[in-house]
Design a protein around this nucleic acid. Structure first.
Lengths: 342, 342
DNA sequence: GTGAAAGCGCTAACAT
DNA sequence: ATGTTAGCGCTTTCAC
């Protein structure tokens, strides 16, 4: 940014003072028409742009929000980011993006970077390792609003946006029951993150409401939530003396692993066994047979989280005391061939 | 950021001057051990953090780079971003992310936002609409380095990172020929973006090198490069009196559309017809049969583009004259069942 | 209507 | 070994 035009330059050329130029630009009432005209003309000619750094320092505001997520390379998260960016753009804000790769240490480090006076607010989806929210309390203390989304925890004076994992898993399970399946297996996520637990609870509740009980033989627990785990657990399930007639996987990726194991075993979906995923990634519809899955509104989540954050930012600017909201977005069961026995 | 501790606060408490505190912190040789000790202790106690806004203004530097891409929700681009963020993180830089949604008008607008003194460098993948690079010339004029990646254009004094689309398409085509296919169809991308053209050229060259000619009946041109287009074009191809025995699609998404059309027609892959994609998205391996595809090193592209940018930034800081490089990353043909007739 | 002065927080040059 | 002055670019008093 060498040779950047400043107010000083304009003032000098017009032989007026810097504040006058500033006021002319902001259309102050007591600046003469003539001065305004000259200033505006020169601003146009020289293509003057206010120096953001100076404005930031002056206003103690960056017009930037920070976004911290576990992994960018993830269809769901990239969708959320896209929603965030759209709202930020509408509001004239920029978005700084950071990722933790699921490392708590990195989460703490990156939040520090942001807190160092760089962002006006933070949108965060917690890493799987995160047990402690002290690094976010720092934001509270400095009056920088935080909104949690997707991977959230309680214990913070902050709004949250989540998906109704419970309902999503409940209705998927119900759908599997309605299709006449008797032995429904569930390959769940880790015991830790809240949404994983909520999905599990939704599954169990749907079984119970149908007068059934969870059969431990049909429950598997992922650690890394990978395709490989899906494959292996499905092999184990299929090798049972009484194998399941339906598998509900906590994630589409896991479901894809299941699908391969089922095919490799020479079984047909859904004739021999039904399969249902969660998230509705693009691959769910691409796969053969197309995979029934629970769609999570990622874009909407991003939008809403950003909107909550901007309303917090405005409230803080105006000294209004802050109230926190928790928004729960509806999931949608997308029924496809992998569970449809007609 | 209310109640932020400043050098002034520390100076006041220690009854020394502000510059002394500053120098103590930077470990200047001529500050007494004792003063340094006291300053460091207080800094620790009060949890002092330098005000970035002040530093930015002072140094005319933000320690931030801008990234502008067409679409975030895209497996390839999110991979690139991830690579960029990793390098930026290593270098102590933050990343501002913007997307154009393939709109030239928005591309111009967002570059303006960034140029307004906010970023120390720009990484950009051009929108499909972009014909004109004046908005990027602005960066040159202001000494803010730019590196183009993936969707690039010439005519700018800037480094570029691309993928060897030509080679990728060439070797995929060669593979299809080697597998004994006689009538190879190509569903190409639009005529505009350079990489689309290069893929097409690679395809044609491979045919020619095998002593064949392009048969116009087997050439289709996408506009939106969608799954739907893949589906429709494939239907047309399969309805020819002499349908192709292999289809090469310019993108995995298009290939997925093809795959569905082939299945719907009751044909088998690869027995009746081979299918090859380009990009190797996650879905390529998830699909049934697994899709042969040309892998593009997205993460590596992000890393290299970022590294080129940081080297430009350093050079400019040191007044070294800038030399531009063009890096072409190797693609890799991932052979899977969709093209393997043994 | 406009200018002069002060300050946002920091650092570099110039004093002692 | 430390303090004083000045300045990054802008805006907000206050003064005339």
């Amino acid at each position: 940014m060498k040779g950047q035009v400043t107010l000083k330059d304009i003032a000098k050329m017009l032989k007026i003072s810097v504040p006058t130029v500033s006021r002319a630009l902001k259309n102050y009432p007591d600046i003469s028409r003539e001065t305004k005209r000259k200033v505006l003309q020169l601003v146009e000619e020289l293509n003057y742009r206010p120096n953001q750094f100076a404005l930031n320092l002056r206003k103690n505001k960056s017009n930037t929000i920070g976004v911290l997520i576990p992994e960018i390379v993830h269809h769901f998260f990239s969708t959320v980011i896209s929603g965030i960016i759209e709202v930020a753009d509408e509001q004239g804000y920029s978005v700084m993006l950071f990722q933790t790769n699921e490392s708590f240490e990195r989460e703490v480090r990156e939040t520090r970077v942001m807190l160092n006076g760089r962002v006006d607010g933070l949108l965060i989806s917690l890493s799987n390792e995160t047990k402690n929210l002290d690094h976010l309390r720092e934001f509270e203390r400095h009056n920088v609003p935080v909104v949690l989304f997707d991977k959230v925890m309680d214990g913070l004076q902050a709004s949250q946006v989540v998906v109704d994992d419970f309902e999503g898993a409940y209705s998927a399970t119900q759908h599997l029951i309605d299709q006449g399946n008797e032995r429904i297996a569930y390959i769940r996520g880790p015991l830790e993150p809240r949404n994983s637990v909520r999905r599990y609870n939704g599954f169990v509740k749907a079984l119970e409401d149908a007068g059934r009980r969870l059969d431990e033989r049909y429950l598997k627990t992922c650690h890394r939530v990978s395709k490989e785990e899906g494959y292996e657990f499905t092999q184990e399930l299929l090798n049972l003396t009484e194998p399941p007639d339906a598998i509900f996987a906590a994630t589409d990726l896991v479901a894809i692993g299941s699908m391969q194991a089922i095919h490799d075993k020479g079984l047909e979906i859904p004739k021999d066994i039904s399969l249902c995923g969660f998230s509705d990634w693009m691959m769910a519809s691409a796969v053969n047979p197309p995979l029934t899955s629970v769609r999570q509104p990622g874009f909407e989540m991003g939008r809403q989280a950003a909107e909550l954050l901007f309303s917090d930012i405005k409230n803080i600017d105006e000294g209004v005391l802050k109230e926190t909201k928790t928004v729960e977005l509806k999931t949608e069961l997308i029924q496809r061939a992998s569970t449809t026995r007609i």
